[in-house]
């Protein structure tokens, strides 16, 4: 598992995918920061984090899209699957690598917060809540995007499918509010990412919210393992 993790993370750090992610993520968050805080002259970070959260819909599939299609195209999955490492360990190794890569991109954005704290009053509770919230939501979203990447042999398809699925999660609330159908509302209120996320926005940590995001991640990691295993049988 550690071998898979190390190789995957290294390949992110030496490949265009890794750098495009860092470039786009830092450019976009920098822009959000500029609009939301610099121009507005505000230390209120709620808007900044809301934009960043929406950015994840695009940026996480971009990061996860190379996890499996490349391996299948170059047949390198043969060396993984025929090695004594079990499929769950391979998948978890890869997941942890993409997750670490995301976290690496998150680190430089702390500069924005440090800057704000120096020029005015910053509510650290909200900042901490949002960073932890981003980490949880990214775990769930990356697992979803990873499943999409294992379903196809093309990185582009993996990216589009990933972004589309994540967008569905994000707009579910809006849709259900507009349509206002009782059953739909009930379902959405259970699975909604947005409403759950609100708690982090207020600097609250609710154990059920954390379990919700973690179980999303676990379910989609499990599905990824199943897809690979199933493919060997068909």
């Amino acid at each position: 598992m550690i071998a898979v993790f190390k190789r995957e993370l290294k390949s992110y750090l030496t490949s265009p995918v890794g750098y495009s992610y860092l470039f786009i993520f830092l450019l976009a968050t920098g822009f959000f920061f500029y609009v939301n805080n610099i121009i507005a002259g505000s230390t209120d970070t709620i808007g900044y984090f809301a934009y960043t959260r929406y950015l994840l819909i695009i940026i996480l599939p971009l990061l996860a899209m190379k996890l499996f299609p490349e391996e299948r195209k170059n047949k390198t999955d043969q060396v993984l699957i025929t090695s004594p490492v079990s499929i769950p360990k391979i998948v978890i190794g890869k997941f942890l690598a993409v997750y670490a890569m995301f976290a690496i991109g998150l680190v430089p954005t702390l500069i924005n917060m440090i800057f704000l704290a120096n020029v005015g009053y910053l509510e650290w509770g909200i900042v901490a809540g949002n960073y932890i919230g981003l980490l949880f939501i990214a775990a769930a979203f990356l697992a979803i995007a990873m499943l999409m990447s294992v379903l196809t042999e093309s990185m582009i398809t993996a990216f589009i499918m990933g972004a589309f699925t994540l967008a569905l999660f994000a707009v579910a609330d809006l849709v259900s509010q507009t349509l206002n159908i009782t059953i739909l509302n009930k379902i959405v209120s259970v699975v909604s990412v947005t409403s759950r996320y609100e708690e982090f926005n207020q600097g609250l940590f609710n154990i059920s919210t954390i379990i919700y995001f973690l179980s999303l991640a676990v379910i989609f990691i499990f599905l990824t393992i199943r897809v690979i295993d199933k493919r060997r049988w068909s």
Binding site: K10, V79, V85
Partner: peptide
Amino acid sequence: GFLPELPPLYMDMTVKEYLDFVYDLKG
């Protein structure tokens, strides 16, 4: 030890890195 029809090589690695990776993978 398995050599598939198409050698399962990671093109973005050096031979050393690749063999080290396989060494770790096989524990």
